[in-house]
Structures are given as C-alpha cells and as structure tokens.
Amino acid sequence: MSDKSNKLPEELQLFTSAHVKYIQSLDTRKDEYDYWLTEHLRLNGLYWGLTALHILGHPEALPRAETIDFVLSCQHENGGFGAAPGHDAHMLSTVSAVQILALVDAFDDLESRGKGKAQVGKYIANLQNRQTGTFAGDEWGEEDTRFLYGAFNALSLLGLLDLVDVDKAVDHIVSCANFDGGYGSGPGAESHASQIFTCVGALTIAGRKDLIDTDRLGRWLSERQVAGGGLNGRPEKKEDVCYSWWVLSSLEMIGKTHWIDRDSLIAFILSCQDPDRGGLSDRPGNMVDVWHTVFSITGLSILGYPGLQPVDEVYCLPKSTIERVLGR
C-alpha cells in the first residue's frame, strides 16, 4: 500500500490501506448486533464497499466469485433483488445488484445462473407509473425520484432502457424542478442535493441535459460549500461528507465543479477519516460507516485526488466499468 510513500503532509493523506481493511472487515462483524440490524442494506452495502475499493485501486480486495454468488442469491423469481436472501425485492437493492454485476463484469452469470437480464428489466419496468412517468420502489407504491434514477441507471447498464417510457419520466423530472434550479423527491418537494443528483443523473442518461437550468442550479450547488470546506445538502443545514458526492457529481454533470473550492473540500473530506481503523464519517470524529466512506472516496475521485481511479459522475461506478459496459 502506498500510504507512507505519499509525499503529502499527514492531514492531506488518504489512509488507503486502513480503508481497504475496514471495508474488508464489514462482513466479518457477525458478532456485532449492528451487523444484523443492517441486513436490509446488505446488497447496497456491498455495492458501496466494492465501489470504494475499485476507486481506491483495490478491486481484488473482496472475492469476486463469492460476490457474484451472494448477489444472485438475493434474486427473486420476478427478477427483482432483495437486500439479502429472504428479503423482499426492492428497486434500491435491484439497482445495487445490477451495479455490482456491472462492476465485476458478471452480466454473463446473471444470464446463465440468475433469472437473466430481461427478467430484471421487466421487474424494474413494471414499477413505472405509466401515467406520471415516475417509479415506485416496490409493489407497495412509494414513489420518489430516487427510484426513477435507479431505474434509468440499472436499465441503461442492462441495455434495456427502451422497456420504459423515457419521455414521460423526463416530463416527471421537469415537474420536480424548483425556482432555485434544483429538484425535489416529487412535484412540490424542496430542492435537496441528493434528489438533484438523481434528477440530473436521470436527465443525463436520457440525453436531456438541455432541460436543466445549469446556471441557476450551479449557483445553488456552489452555495452548498460552507466555511469549513464541507458541503451541505440544503440551505442553512450542516455539512455532511456524503454531499461530497451528491453535490460534486451534480456539478460535474453540468460542467461546474470548479465553482467550489477544491482544496478546502479535500481537506474536509480527509478530516472525516478514522486514520487508524479506516472508514470515513459524516463529520470529523463521528462514527464511520461504509455509506459515508464510499461517497467521500468517490467525491475525492471527482476532485482528482492523486492515486484514485476516476469515477463516473452519472453512475457512481469507475469510469472503466462504464466504458466496458456502455462501450464509451
């Protein structure tokens, strides 16, 4: 590992080997109550951890064969994936499954040993509200632009975007736009950085960035940077390291990453590390978790922090994965 060979001063170092070990340790914590309480996020967690490892340049740190086996063990007959074996299918875990399979180049396994791409596509497409264009998370009907983005993300990776009504979904996103240039979880909802990521991401996948008020949105997003260098998700809120992803990826998609201060954001992200045991937390000194860890590292990647693999700002996967899957 290259931590020590780094010429950067201690406070500007990324403790790569500690983070790799932390992520590797996540599935060995079966004697901790929290491990069981978070089983409903297992597949998502695997996506977060694996993406972080790939961006850190350690894709081999989790075993590929077991990863694929686990993902396929979460799939239901209807094509959808649950968060873990025995958990109901849901859009969020289904998207994580597709992302993981893309990451480890295992769509072939999905065809040969799983229910196949077409069935996954059908599961996702059935969750579209054909009247409004938006998507539900599962059969119980909660709708949110998060699910719309997830559907676009997974379907486009599978090459099945034509299964859904893209134009209607785009109309729906437009109806979620606010005067400040941002987007909310649905029509009428307040602008929120993570919902902006989902809406701008979906519009990018649909090839409709022309519908974004990039100037106004860019101003709003750049105002998310607060005095300490970190980013918040809404006006007058505290900074949180996960917005290093939601805000930055959105700025990147509209070509305005340079509208925030790179160096102070890097310093803030690095201050959220646990240097000894690895992982990053929402703010310095708090509990680390794999969610904040991945979105810190992908944020650093967008900022061009040395030694990291480039991340795709739309899919939150390595650029190399997107090039391989989408042939870009």
């Binding site: 998502n44 875990s93 993570s194 509990m287």
Partner: peptide
C-alpha cells in the same frame, strides 16, 4: 446507489473495543 444518510452499518469509533462480557451481551 441507494440513498439516505444516517449511519448505515455504523460502528462507533469508541465502541469498537468490547469487553468479554459486552461481547457476550451482544451475542
């Protein structure tokens, strides 16, 4: 993807060392 913050899978920096009896209580 997946959303929303909070401390998913969070392990407190301070609580990573458990005594034997704490570990047993967890088990």
């Amino acid at each position: 993807m997946a959303e929303h913050g909070g401390s998913h899978g969070g392990i407190a920096r301070t609580s990573r060392e458990r005594t034997a009896s704490e570990r047993q209580a967890d088990l």
